[in-house]
């Protein structure tokens, strides 16, 4: 096996894992941290992509469309939290049912507004990098950096800021948090909307790689949910590890064997890990996040 081929496989598998991490980060906050099962989560990713696409079409540079997409998804997230999720805290099945319905609603809403297929835009960055005889999509490699920065941002936000402490307090000990004067309802709304904003960010930043379609969220939904579930209670660091292992591993398997075996690898290892660690791989870690 030539060195350049090996290097391309490693780099591209790392980028595949990074893309999965980008898609799963919002879920790590909403599900991993808050424990809310939001089945409409991947639709926020789709909304982010459509938001970025729409403003880019209106003439806004692509790079500026990303913060706009984040703001839009954060606001929708806050509304959803106040109208639906807040009323169902602690009612697992009701939350699942409500957010599942919501996901169908969003999907059809986008079909009604934009139609089943949407024209893409030419202003999205495309460049490539070559390694030896092989060439790779440069934007895709950039995602490794984006994923690292995204993780760092969320990690520092949750551990080093006052908001982060309030957020964790409101989730872990809501009554105690309220007793010392934290408006835990408002903090929870913000945390949920940050999770949705992260999904929106993912949709917008992945737009050059994954075309915006009403059902694009589904492609990420299953794998990112599994990655977060396998990660367990130490949601953020755990998710980094699982996306690297599962996403990267399945990409390497697909490169050497076949795409089908790559998929099989992902789900088989997931099943195996959940069998070994029913509460997630981080169940016995002594870290906080």
């Amino acid at each position: 096996m030539e060195l350049d081929y090996l290097a391309t496989i490693l780099l591209s598998s790392l980028s595949s894992a990074s893309i999965l991490l980008i898609a799963a980060m919002g879920l790590a906050v909403v599900f991993g941290l808050m424990g809310v099962i939001n089945l409409a989560h991947s639709e926020f990713l789709m909304i982010g992509a459509y938001a970025a696409l729409t403003v880019t079409k209106a003439g806004v540079p692509y790079i500026l469309s990303i913060p706009i997409a984040v703001m839009i998804t954060m606001s929708i997230g806050a509304i959803v939290e106040m109208l639906i999720v807040r009323r169902l805290y602690g009612r697992l099945f009701d939350t699942m049912l409500a957010t599942w319905g919501l996901s169908m609603f969003f999907m059809q809403l986008v079909v009604v507004i934009f139609g089943t297929s949407t024209v893409s835009v030419a202003t999205i960055p495309q460049f490539n990098v070559s390694i030896g005889e092989y060439s790779l999509d440069g934007y895709r490699l950039l995602m490794i950096l984006v994923a690292a920065l995204m993780f760092l941002f969320v990690y520092l936000l949750m551990t080093k800021t006052v908001y982060g402490m309030k957020a964790r307090a409101s989730i872990q000990q809501p009554e105690m948090a309220q007793a010392i004067g934290i408006d835990s309802n408002r903090v929870n709304t913000l945390t949920f909307s940050i999770g949705c904003g992260l999904a929106g960010f993912a949709g917008a930043i992945l737009l050059p790689l994954v075309p915006a379609t009403p059902t694009m969220g589904l492609a990420f939904a299953v794998k990112s949910f599994l990655a977060v579930v396998v990660a367990g209670p130490v949601a953020l660091t755990g998710t980094v590890l699982t996306t690297l292992g599962l996403g990267g591993g399945s990409s390497i398997t697909a490169s050497f064997l076949s795409s089908v075996i790559g998929e099989v690898f992902f789900f088989l290892i997931t099943a195996l890990l959940l069998w070994l660690y029913p509460c997630g791989i981080s169940a016995k870690w002594r870290r906080k996040l």
Partner: peptide, 17 residues
């Protein structure tokens, strides 16, 4: 051959190269 759920085509693209 790719499952309908695959969205990452890099492995295929490398095989093509």
């Amino acid at each position: 051959f790719l499952a309908l759920t695959v969205t990452d085509y890099t492995p295929t693209i490398q095989k093509i190269q």
